[in-house]
């Protein structure tokens, strides 16, 4: 239970970083932290104490089968990491272009649009 709680704490920390920081690089870091929190959460869902890798071999004892960790969440996390990398590179690219335009990373200086 504590680990799930820690995931939420990590998620909230990322969200705080995103909302409170004016520097857009720090905002990006906030997004990355939130991403990691969710990946961690997914891994914990499939985790088992004393679990083994889910590889089926012939004549396996039933006790081993029961100790398998859930492979699906690990596949989800792999996909999620790849997506996160794509989004991160786009964010950093835009961040560099914004810096070239304004000469600063401060969102309150950059911000002209009213929302």
């Amino acid at each position: 239970m504590t680990v799930y709680f820690m995931c939420i704490v990590l998620l909230t920390m990322g969200l705080y970083c995103l909302v409170a920081k004016k520097n857009i690089v720090k905002k990006i870091l906030g997004i990355v932290i939130m991403d990691y929190a969710v990946n961690l959460y997914l891994i914990i869902i499939g985790y088992k104490t004393g679990g083994v890798a889910p590889i089926i071999e012939p004549n396996m004892p039933a006790a081993t089968l029961e100790r398998f960790v859930d492979p699906l969440t690990q596949a989800l996390v792999l996909t999620s990491i790849v997506i996160g990398l794509g989004v991160l590179s786009l964010m950093v690219a835009m961040c560099i272009r914004l810096y070239e335009k304004h000469g600063t990373f401060d969102m309150s200086v950059i911000s002209k649009l009213r929302g």
Binding site: L11, G14, L15, L18, I24, K27, I31, M34, D35, A37, V38, Y41, L42, S80, I83, V87, L90, M91, M94, C95, R97, L98, K101, H102, I110, S111, K112, L113, G115
Partner: peptide
Amino acid sequence: VGAEELEAGFKYLILGSVASVMLLF
């Protein structure tokens, strides 16, 4: 890639990423 476009795109990107994180959760 004008100043306004980049800012709007960045804003959309940040908020969209938050939405994605929530959905995955």
